[in-house]
């Protein structure tokens, strides 16, 4: 990684390519520091973070609930389940025209796109998790008196947790991408907006600086949050490969 950045910097210094097309790491770094100092990047991060927390949070809660239901109710699986799998091939940004129609050019439209990005993966993973539960666990729980809400809360959710986390991880990646895409089009604050602004001003330093922020942030959440949770679950479950 460091080597790669070194080569990149050296290439820029040697002027193998013009700076305005592909700026050097040091230029990006100083733009980044400036951006943090004048607050524009921090505000961008803050706004994007708020949007993703809201959109992703909604997706997780809704996705897990719907996934559990689809996993348990045959009729739902044959209707909604099939529909969701079909929709999976649709990139969530394709919902943008509809979102604008329904919500106008507002926060609601962006939120909708984020939800459409994460929701399906979480539903599908949860559904698969429910189907994968050993019938033995189901029998044990029913035998020990679990029914109704308790059955969902004390059996289905914990037993499905590894699958839910996998779905959440995948959903996170989709949500984050959808958010940036949405912000680039809709553009009112947020990292995607900064990206577009940089392009309009022909400021490639800023574009790349924001890209770095986007990558680093997405990576951090994946590594620091999901990897750890997954590892913990695998240990607890006694799965191999930990």
């Amino acid at each position: 990684m460091i080597l790669l950045i070194g080569i990149w910097e050296a290439g820029s210094r040697a002027e193998l390519w013009p700076d305005y097309l592909f700026p050097s790491p040091s230029a990006i770094g100083s733009t980044l520091i400036d951006g943090v100092k004048d607050g524009s990047i921090l505000i961008g991060i803050g706004v994007s973070l708020w949007r993703i927390l809201l959109g992703y949070g909604l997706s997780v809660v809704g996705g897990v609930l719907l996934g559990l239901l689809i996993g348990r109710v045959q009729v739902l699986d044959q209707t909604l389940g099939v529909l969701l799998v079909g929709l999976q091939s649709l990139p969530s940004i394709a919902w943008f025209p509809l979102a604008i129609l329904w919500f106008g050019l507002s926060e609601g439209a962006i939120l909708f796109i984020v939800v459409m990005g994460a929701f399906q993966s979480i539903v599908i993973a949860t559904d698969a998790g429910v189907r994968g539960i050993s019938p033995l666990y189901v029998n044990v729980a029913r035998n020990l008196g679990a029914k109704g809400f308790q059955f969902y809360w004390r059996l289905l959710i914990p037993a499905t947790l590894p699958a839910i986390v996998t779905g959440m991880k995948q959903g996170w990646a989709f949500a984050w991408r959808s958010l940036i895409a949405g912000e680039m089009i809709f553009g009112n604050l947020g990292l995607g907006y900064l990206l577009m602004k940089g392009r309009e001003l022909n400021n490639m330093d800023e574009v790349l600086a924001v890209m770095v922020v986007i990558i680093v942030f997405g990576l951090c959440v994946d590594q620091l949050l999901f990897r750890r949770v997954e590892k913990k679950i695998h240990q607890r479950w006694g799965m191999i490969g930990t």
């Binding site: 666990y137 044990v140 035998n143 020990l144 008196g145 029914k147």
Partner: peptide, 19 residues
Amino acid sequence: GPGTDRIVIFQDAGLFPWL
């Protein structure tokens, strides 16, 4: 239906790994 006056011990214990 199921009732806790009759408890089964299964061949594979069926303990929950999350507890």
